[in-house]
Every structure is written in structure tokens, then in C-alpha cells.
Design a binder for these strands. Structure first.
Length: 822
DNA sequence: ATCTCCCGCCATATG
DNA sequence: CATATGGCGGGAGAT
């Protein structure tokens, strides 16, 4: 299509021109901005036009205008530039506007510098695109890239044409939590594994594979779409915004983030991410160009996320070579637990369909855009599902189990493991929020929640009315969205799910879990870990970013601490996973299931239902957000903020879906062994929440193993920190398999602890193979203490300065990976 | 050569 | 209809 592409020329031309003009320009000659060269224009007629039009300006003037913003450096450079080349003549180049200076990452920094991380309630900031483009002197298109990603994180929302509202990081905790949940529901972990396996397999026989694919693909064909989940709300009332459109960048961004949140190491390679993102829709495609495009987009997203310091670029070295990847450096998601409920769901399949719904504010609208229309045409059956789900849920809730804890107050209990186990259904604390308005109401209705965590399982149930599902869903026809209340935050998210998923969700009963707890051990440990490792180094050495930003008062705080310890416990993740490959191949039938599941994800954009109060108090909260929290205390207030306390209660239920699924998978693949990650980590204390079903999952695993469904071997570590489990199962299984898995992490790794797991492991799996592969590693890790690091991964620095990450567990990776930071 | 990823055309959505 | 949005992919800088 574009064959023409004039633009290039322009640039080129301009350069040329420049050169000509100024021969001296440096060798480098970075092309100065085209604009400047204006004289040059003429090359193609088109080009002229373009120039005229678009160009107009910004840059040019901007140069002068440019403000300082944060990066002085950059500006400075430019300025020089402007002045001109001749100056430079001498030596090096400095760079002109080199490409880097125009990078999206840098631009994003400038953009972010304009607004506070945690704007006070009072001051809402509005963003006018025209102003921004002008001030930052950038093309509008670039701003959209940034804003779209920010929207996916609910850091901004669109009010109207050209107008966005800045929310800052207040919603981040909830958003991440919701994303994590959805990611788990989507079985991303499994997908990742599957992809990895395929790679191996393929290596040599490219041909062979096709078979499987096909099969899988079939199922998938469906489609997809993205449904998007939208998150928390907060004001989006105004209009529509959601209306539709694809939002692919937004959706892609959310999915990308989900991958980090569900992965144990929290490291995601671009390749894998691209495949998964593509995969959703279509399975296999061999399409290369599509893959390339996806990668390009991921870089765009990654640049923005990097600016937000949520991720950092690293390299993963596998057998064959190193691949670009990103490591999550953002806050851990809370475990929150509780709430997990899901609520509604709808499918949204169709992409473009809906329209805006004008409804008024609140959830309902958002959730169901369709309201008016039918967006969801698809399943009427959903309703049924919903009901069944509800029932299940109730059961679950009621389930025996545990004790509960209060959430707020009892933090301490956290340590205890058991608590975790308990689970409560969800609950949300809407009340806290109290303030909120209608939204709340909605929530309430839909979901209920008890304020605090609610320990008792029952409680939740009670609210029958509330059952989320019931209410809402019914109304619409097809879908029912689920709402999740968030405990802490109080916010609920609505997620649209594919019907298929719904099922999964439903069941499960928690009752079992308990035993497994090996975790307990872990728990104790956990405390130690706290550390936050993240912060660490940092660096980035390379480039950019470092610059500081002056503004933002708060900002500083946040990140660093973040991790708070308590919270640290956080999560775990579940594991699930497994690999299916084998299975697939072998059993078709089964595969299908697998495949299907894969296929459908709900992916989506999360929408926020309520809004919570964030605004208000946020400030304080901000700290919390940062991480800490835990202790914090009981006051409710904090909870609001979001993050919060993890109460023990957290556990809750939750994510059942995963469970169910898991088992299947597991069954299928016996071989998988290694792969199977079974549980992810358990969490530390209570936590877990978030979506992860850890506890339960663990329970499942446990059960399965006993039963024999699972090969064994695998277990998962409890908390990330600790973890690392070695899993080793052998992989060998029949067919293929890869061999090793090990993850490596960095060698040094400071801390990694694996302890808990191991033991656990052994106990359960007697037979488990050990891992031939990395025995050492394991041991090492074993011993290591927690020293410090905590969070999930630990980093160490290599001689060369690069950091290495060691991570916790991985599920399966069969190979070793090394991660290097740049 | 590969990794990154900027640039901006042009299809769509919105007003 | 004029704009605002944003998908998309060529192809160039960075390594």
C-alpha cells in the first residue's frame, strides 16, 4: 500500500538537503528535523502538502518554545541543534534530534511530568490534547499512543474529543488486580507454556507440527474478540467513551500487562507476548507480517509502560539466544483476595459492535453497553450460566472452611497461613466507599460485599440478592457481567467473559484445599522476604529516563517503597498451567478442550464499575498504594485506597476457573510434567488474593497429585519469593519434551528462596523426579535465604553491570533462562 | 544483520 | 462534512 511513502523521502531529502547546505554537518548528520529544512520540501508534491499541513509545526516552533519540561537534556540538545549545525561541526555529533530523542518513551516522560502521580481529589486535571501536542511538540498521533496505554491502566479517561481526565496512579492497584484476575482466567500461563513448548518441538521438525496446530486452531477459530474489560471506574461517566471501537491498543496493553501479572517470573518476552496476543484471535496464523506488526505495537506499549516504571527491558537468554523481554517492576498486585468474584460477564464478542451507550453513569452502563442494543447477542444461554454460577458460588461460599479473619483488623493473622486458606467469598467493601454514589449502588446490588472482608463465608452468600450475577445479568439478555467487588478498594470491575469461561468458573469448592498448605512453612518465611526488591537498581542505565522529574511530589515515594512488605506476601499465583502440548497432540478430544479454552479468553478491557472514592483521600492512600500497606492499619480508610491491607480474608475464593481448568489440563498431559507448574506460588500469608486461586489451586494440585492425575512433580512454590521450585519433573515423557527446564535465573541471585517449596514438594511427590537438570541450582537456592530480596525476583548485578534476575519459580521452563537487564 | 520503533498514510469514529 | 482517533506497516536509526 504505501508504496509511495513519501514521507521517508522527506526526511531523507531533507537530510540531503541539509547536507548539501551544510556540508559540514557532521558526519552523523542526524537529520534534523525535517521541518527545519523546510526549504527542502519540494520533493514530492505530496510531500509538500504533507509538510505544510502537518508540519506546520510543532516542531519548529516548538523548538523554541520548548519548554523545559523535565528533560533538560533533551531540550538542550535540541536547542543546540537549532542553533545549528555549524556549531557542531566539530566533533561529534551530538546528536540531533536523534531518533532517541524522539522516542515514545521520552515523550511519555514528558507527558507524565505534566501531571502528578496522585492527583488530589480536588484537583482533577484535564488533559487537552491540543495543548499537549503543542507543548511537547509532537504529533498528535504519538499522544494517542501514550494516552491509549494510560487508558488501559485507567490512569486517564476520555471525556470528550480532545479531552481526557488525568487520574494518575490512583486506580492502578485496582486495575492491576483486575487485570491479574482476568489474566488468570484466561489461562495465560498455560498459553505461555504451550508456546514455549511448541518452540521446542518445532525446532526440528517444522513440518510435523502442523497437525497439532490445526487441531487447536479449529477450536479457536472462533473468535474472538475482544471483549474488553474495563476497569475500575472512576469517572468515566461522561460520555461514552467506551463506545466501542476496538481499542486494540488498549486491549493489547491490558493483555500485555496481564501476562506479567500471571507469570511467575514476571518476565515476558516480546515473542511470547506477541504470539499470545495474536493467538487469541486466530490461532495459528503463520503470518509473519502480523507478528511483526504485533511486535511493533508491543514496543510502543512497552515504552509507555517503561516510562511508568511498570516494566523494564531485559533480555532472556535461552538456549538459542537472547531475546528481548520485559520484566515487571511495578507493584505487586495485591492479593487481595477477596473478592474475586466474578461477576458478570458478557461476552463481547463482536468487535465493533456496540455502540455507545449513552447511559448515564455508572456501571450499568458501562458494563453493558449493550443495553440498548444488543451487543451481546450471543448467548442467551448465559443467563443460565449465570444462575448456575451463582449457585455454585453460593455453595462455595458456604463452604466449610475456614475461619476467617477479619480483614481489616487482623492483619496479623496474616502470617498465619490458614487464614489464607480460608477464603471467603468475596466481598467487597463497598461500603467503605460509601461515598460513592450510584455506582455503589450498583455494585451493591450486583455484588455484594460485605465490608470488610468478611470472614465468614457465609456472609457473602447471604447477600443473595446481591449476587451479582443475578441482578445484572438478567437484565440484559445475554450476558451478564460479573462484577467483582474489590475488597479494598471497593471498586468493582466488570468483566465480560466468554460464556465458556463462565462455566469454568463456577465450580469448585474450596473445601479441599486445606491440606496442602505446605505453604505454611512458607508463610513464615515470607515475612522475610519482604523486601522490595524492585527498586533496586534501576536503572536504566541507558538511556534516558533517568531524568528526574521535578514535579510530582508524590511521585517519589511511590515506587520505591512499594513493595511493602506486608503486602509482599502477596501473592502467589497460581499455577496452573501446564502444558498441554502433549496432550494436544495426543488426544484430540482433549485437546480441544484445551484449545478452546485458549481460544476464548475473555480478554478484554476492564471496565470499572464503580468508582470509588479514590479521589478523596487518596493521598494518604497513596502511600499505601505504594505498597505498603499492610500494616497500616485498620482503618478503613485505607482500604479504600486500594491497596490495602491485605487482609487475611483475602483469600477468598476466587478464581475458580482456573482450577477447573487446570485439572483438565493436567490430566491430559501427563507428560507435562515439568511443565506443570501447578501452583504457583502460594502466597504468603494471606494473600493471594488476587485472583489467584492459589490456595485453592494448591489444593487442587494436591489432590490431583494424589489422585494421580497429575504427574507430580510439580509443585509450586509458595510465594514467589520463595519459590522457585524446582520442578523438575521430568519431562520426558513420552514424546518429546524438552528437557530442561531450568530456569535460571541469575546466578547469583541474591535471594531466592525456595525453600518452602521444596519440602513440600518432596513430600508430595515422592516419585517426582528430581530434576536432573538443575540440581544445583536448586540447592542453592534452597539455602539461600531470603535475604533480601523479596519480591518475586531477585536481582543481582553482574560484573558487567547488568542485572540478573533470578526469579522465582518458573513454571516450567524447560530451559534455562537467564535474564539480563540492559 | 538484527533490534527498535518512528513516521505518517489512511480507514474509522465522532461531533 | 471536518476532525479526531488510531490501525498499520514501511523502512530507517541503533546496535
Amino acid at each position: 500500500r504505501n508504496v509511495l511513502k513519501t514521507p521517508l523521502k522527506q526526511a531523507a531529502t531533507s537530510q540531503v538537503v541539509l547536507t548539501e547546505r551544510q556540508p559540514d554537518c557532521q558526519p552523523l548528520t542526524t537529520p534534523p528535523k525535517p521541518k527545519e529544512t523546510s526549504p527542502a520540501e519540494p520533493w514530492t508534491p505530496t510531500s509538500n502538502l504533507k509538510m505544510l499541513i502537518s508540519a506546520a509545526s510543532p516542531e519548529i516552533r516548538s523548538r523554541e518554545q520548548r519548554k523545559q519540561l523535565s528533560n533538560s537534556s533533551t531540550e538542550v540538545l535540541e536547542a543546540k541543534h537549532c542553533l545549528q549545525e555549524h556549531l557542531l561541526g566539530d566533533e561529534y555529533e551530538k546528536s540531533q534530534p536523534s531518533r532517541k530523542e524522539k522516542s515514545l518513551g521520552l515523550l511519555c516522560h514528558k507527558f507524565l511530568a505534566r501531571y502528578p502521580d496522585y492527583p488530589s481529589a480536588a484537583q482533577k486535571s484535564y488533559i487537552c490534547l491540543d495543548e499537549v501536542t503543542e507543548e511537547l511538540h509532537v504529533e498528535r498521533r504519538r499522544i494517542y499512543d501514550i494516552v491509549n496505554v494510560l487508558e488501559s491502566l485507567h490512569m486517564v479517561s476520555r471525556l470528550a474529543r480532545n479531552r481526557y481526565v488525568w487520574h494518575g496512579r490512583h486506580n492502578l492497584p485496582q486495575t492491576l488486580q483486575a487485570l491479574k484476575k482476568v489474566g488468570e482466567e484466561n489461562k495465560y500461563i498455560q498459553q505461555i507454556q504451550m508456546i514455549k513448548k511448541r518452540e521446542y518441538e518445532h525446532e526440528f521438525d517444522p513440518d510435523g507440527e502442523r497437525n497439532e496446530e490445526t487441531a487447536s486452531s479449529l477450536g479457536s477459530s472462533e473468535q474472538s474478540e475482544m471483549s474488553f474489560v474495563e476497569l475500575p471506574g472512576v469517572e468515566f461517566r461522561a460520555a461514552s467513551v467506551n463506545g466501542r471501537k476496538y481499542k486494540s491498543l488498549r486491549v493489547m496493553s491490558q493483555k500485555f500487562v496481564m501476562l506479567f501479572l500471571v507469570s511467575t517470573p514476571q518476565i515476558v518476552s516480546l515473542e511470547v507476548a506477541a504470539k499470545i496476543l495474536i493467538g487469541e484471535d486466530q490461532l495459528e496464523d503463520l503470518d509473519k507480517s502480523k507478528f511483526k506488526t504485533k511486535i511493533r505495537r508491543l514496543y510502543d506499549i512497552a515504552n509507555v509502560l517503561s516510562s511508568l516504571k511498570l516494566i523494564k527491558k531485559v533480555h532472556v537468554t535461552e538456549e538459542r539466544g537472547r531475546k528481548p523481554a520485559f520484566k515487571w517492576t511495578g507493584p505487586e498486585v495485591l492479593p487481595n483476595i477477596q473478592d474475586t468474584k466474578l461477576e458478570a460477564t458478557s461476552t463481547t464478542c463482536s468487535p465493533p459492535v456496540s455502540e455507545s451507550v449513552p447511559s448515564k453513569e455508572h456501571c450499568s452502563k458501562n458494563l453493558f453497553p449493550s443495553k440498548g442494543k444488543q451487543n451481546f447477542t450471543r448467548h442467551s444461554s448465559l443467563i443460565k450460566l449465570v444462575k448456575s454460577i451463582e449457585n455454585d458460588r453460593r455453595k462455595i461460599q458456604s463452604a466449610p472452611t475456614s475461619p476467617v479473619k477479619m480483614s481489616t483488623s487482623t492483619y496479623q493473622s496474616l502470617p498465619v497461613f490458614p487464614s489464607t486458606i480460608t477464603q471467603l467469598p468475596a466481598i467487597a467493601k463497598p461500603q467503605l466507599e460509601g461515598q460513592s454514589k450510584t455506582a455503589e449502588e450498583m455494585q451493591m446490588k450486583c455484588a455484594l460485599s460485605s465490608p470488610e472482608a468478611v470472614p465468614k463465608p457465609e456472609a457473602p452468600q447471604q447477600p443473595p440478592p446481591s449476587q451479582p450475577l443475578g441482578a445484572c445479568p438478567a437484565s440484559h439478555g445475554s450476558v451478564s457481567p460479573v462484577i467483582l467487588p474489590h475488597p479494598h478498594s471497593g471498586v468493582s470491575y466488570a468483566i465480560y467473559l466468554h460464556p465458556s469461561q463462565a462455566h469454568t468458573v463456577t465450580t469448585y469448592s474450596p473445601g479441599f484445599m486445606l491440606q496442602p498448605l505446605p505453604c505454611a512453612n512458607v508463610t513464615g518465611i515470607k515475612s522475610n522476604n519482604s523486601k522490595a526488591l524492585n527498586k533496586i537498581t534501576t536503572e536504566e542505565g541507558d538511556n534516558q529516563i533517568a531524568t528526574a522529574e521535578p514535579t510530582k511530589p508524590l511521585a517519589a515515594e511511590e515506587r520505591p517503597e512499594v513493595k511493602s512488605e506486608t503486602s509482599s506476601q502477596r501473592c502467589l499465583k497460581r499455577s496452573q498451567a501446564l502444558q498441554e502440548n502433549n496432550l494436544i497432540k495426543r488426544h484430540k478430544g482433549d485437546e480441544e478442550s484445551c484449545g478452546t479454552s485458549l481460544t476464548f479468553f475473555p480478554s478484554g478491557y476492564l471496565i470499572p464499575l464503580t468508582h470509588c472514592t479514590h479521589g478523596t483521600k487518596a493521598d494518604c492512600s497513596s502511600k499505601e498504594k505504594a505498597g505498603i500497606c499492610s500494616l497500616q492499619h485498620p482503618t478503613f480508610s485505607s482500604p479504600i485506597t486500594g491497596v490495602i491491607p491485605m487482609t487475611a480474608s483475602e483469600l477468598k475464593t476466587v478464581n475458580i476457573p482456573a482450577f477447573h481448568i487446570t485439572p483438565l489440563n493436567i490430566m491430559l498431559s501427563p507428560n507435562s510434567i515439568a511443565a506443570a507448574p501447578v501452583l504457583g506460588n502460594s502466597c504468603l500469608s494471606a494473600s493471594n488474593a488476587s485472583s489467584a486461586p492459589n490456595p485453592s489451586s494448591s489444593a487442587l494440585n494436591f489432590m490431583l497429585q494424589h489422585i494421580g492425575l497429575i504427574p507430580a512433580g510439580v509443585q509450586v512454590p509458595a510465594n514467589p519469593v520463595l519459590q522457585h521450585v524446582p520442578v523438575s519433573s521430568q519431562a520426558e515423557s513420552t514424546s518429546h519434551s524438552s528437557g530442561n527446564t531450568n530456569v535460571q535465573e541469575g546466578k547469583v541471585g541474591t535471594n531466592v528462596l525456595r525453600l518452602g517449596r521444596v519440602n513440600f514438594f518432596s513430600s508430595f511427590q515422592p516419585s517426582a523426579p528430581k530434576d536432573p537438570q538443575e540440581p544445583q541450582a536448586v540447592t542453592e537456592s534452597f539455602f539461600r535465604t531470603p535475604g533480601g530480596p523479596n519480591s518475586g525476583s531477585s536481582l543481582s548485578t553482574n560484573s558487567d553491570g547488568t542485572e540478573r534476575i533470578s526469579q522465582g519459580t518458573l513454571y516450567i521452563p524447560q530451559r534455562k533462562l537467564e535474564v539480563l537487564e540492559d
